[in-house]
Design a binder for these strands. Structure first.
Length: 442
RNA sequence: GCGCCCUUGGUGAAGUGGUUAACACGCUAGUUUGUGGCACUAGUAUGCAAGAGUUCGAUUCUCUUAGGACGCCCCA
């Protein structure tokens, strides 16, 4: 039997409904921020990621899904969303758009060749926001608030926002040197991995799991100590704006991000619920002012974040958030003989086009099992079509929770359902209304 | 790339080097010739991830491959 590929998932059933619900929330929140949807290709030139993500780490060569196509081109499945968006920004000359900055969001699958573990798959789905063409701290604050508001709308509560500033490029490079100089004399006191990291990626030593309590690491100089005046001012401004937005945050000098295109603000949003696995960061981002020019575009200041839908759903489960998923149908039509089957087909079609969720029997099962099926589908109303009754232009419709039956004229079926289902309390989910409700709660 | 554990039906699972692979749920049918969800009865894996080996004989032992879970590395 052919099995699915390692680290991939089939999403279906109730899980698929949850994904669609989350997607709906994202679309709605983005609309409010006037952030436009962008769809870029899933595969790109390998060099986009090679140059975009940087050569200092071995992420790209080792952990992208890449291959040579039939025309001899080196292709990579996108491992993240930002590079493609930036490529598109440059290629479509969006920097010439009279309205700046360009605010876009994406939502799609990414591919990383790595060993699956809790919260990590080879195919993952991320949504993310990029604000291209603004160097103002207000964009930094807004980026974080977008992420937070999406999570809030979903119903997540155990969130922790961690922020840090890497400063501008000089600050960052300077800090790297300082850090190497600081650790060098203590190298023998660090774990094996950290000894390797010292040259390759010293910033990550701060995040070491083995030596987390090692005083050498705890007392290491922080990025913030090496910010220049302008960078410091930016960071203070950002904190003030987050306070204004009532976003609780924590400054964590260990947040450094692996890639070297980041500067100024970097942030991670964790779900700290105890049921989350080791990978509990559900969203992360930062400012990347150097990337557009690095990819041959004009100097453009950008900020953005990305968030894994899979991780969000892990958090939803960990926090036991009940998503308001519609898991019922309006009417189930039962029948036995061929004449009744045709009536079922006809009325199902009519009612569906009138806006109702209608289902019926397709496998010729006994009436008894049709009742069971109606129950499993959580049918609000059921109707057993009867040839004799239909000849007189009538049918019996039954409320499947109260069990009350009524005989009605066939032609009044739509009006009957309209009256019963669309009046009074309705449990259909209106995301827009939900949002207004939650906004007011805050 | 490395480590560790795991893989039995539609589902949850028990089990053993040797006749018919427990049990439960589910499903199907009947009791009940068109109004069910209860009850009872019957049926429901020629098969134990795939392949190879050891053996008189393997689902059970060994190896390989694939997949799952978790952790390390890395983390976009």
């Amino acid at each position: 039997m052919i099995q699915k590929q390692k680290g991939t998932n089939d999403i279906f059933g109730i899980q698929a409904k949850k994904w669609k619900y989350i997607d709906g929330i994202i679309d709605m929140v983005m609309e409010k921020y006037n952030c436009n949807y962008i769809r870029t290709p899933i595969f790109e030139d390998f060099n986009l990621f090679h140059r975009g993500i940087g050569e200092s780490t071995d992420i790209v060569s080792k952990e992208t899904y890449d291959f040579e196509d039939k025309g001899g081109r080196r292709i990579a499945l996108r491992p993240e969303g930002t590079a493609g968006v930036v490529r598109s920004f440059i290629e479509n000359k969006m920097y010439g758009d009279p309205v700046q900055p360009i605010k876009v969001y994406y939502n799609g699958t990414m591919y990383r060749y790595e060993r699956p573990q809790s919260g990590r798959d080879r195919e993952l789905t991320q949504f993310g926001v990029e604000i291209l063409g603004s160097d103002d701290v207000i964009s930094d604050a807004e980026t974080i608030s977008i992420a937070i508001n999406v999570y809030k709308m979903i119903g997540l509560k155990d969130l922790k926002v961690k922020i840090n500033s890497l400063g501008d490029k000089e600050s960052r490079d300077n800090y790297r040197k300082v850090l190497i100089d600081y650790f060098k004399p203590h190298i023998k006191d660090l774990c094996e991995d950290c000894q390797e990291r010292l040259e390759k990626n010293p910033l990550r030593i701060l995040d070491c799991k083995v030596d987390a309590d090692n005083p050498i690491i705890k007392n290491a100089p922080t990025t913030i100590d090496y910010l220049n005046e302008e960078s410091k001012k930016r960071f203070e401004d950002l904190k003030e704006m987050l306070d204004l937005l009532q976003i609780n945050y924590e400054v964590d000098p260990k947040i450094v991000r692996g890639l070297d295109y980041y500067n100024h603000v970097v942030f991670e949003i964790e779900d700290i619920n105890e049921n989350m696995g080791i990978n509990n960061v559900i969203g992360a981002g930062g400012r990347y002012n150097g990337l557009v020019s690095q990819l041959d575009g004009p100097e453009t200041a950008c900020v953005g974040f990305a968030s894994g839908i899979g991780r969000i759903l892990d958090a939803v489960e960990a926090e036991k958030v009940e998503l308001p998923i519609i898991d019922s149908i309006d009417l189930f039509l039962l029948y036995v003989n061929d004449d009744e089957k045709k009536s079922a087909l006809y009325y199902a079609d009519e009612l569906r086009m009138a806006g109702y969720i209608v289902d019926t029997e397709y496998t010729g099962k006994s009436l008894k099992s049709q009742f069971k099926k109606a129950d499993k589908l959580n049918a609000k109303y059921i109707c057993v079509l009867n040839s004799e009754q239909l000849k007189n232009g009538e049918m019996t419709i039954k409320n499947n929770s109260t069990k009350e039956e009524e005989v009605i004229g066939c032609e009044s079926l739509i009006y009957y359902l309209d009256e019963k289902l669309n009046s009074g309390i309705e449990d259909d989910v209106d995301i827009d209304e939900l949002m207004k409700g939650k906004m007011l709660d805050e």
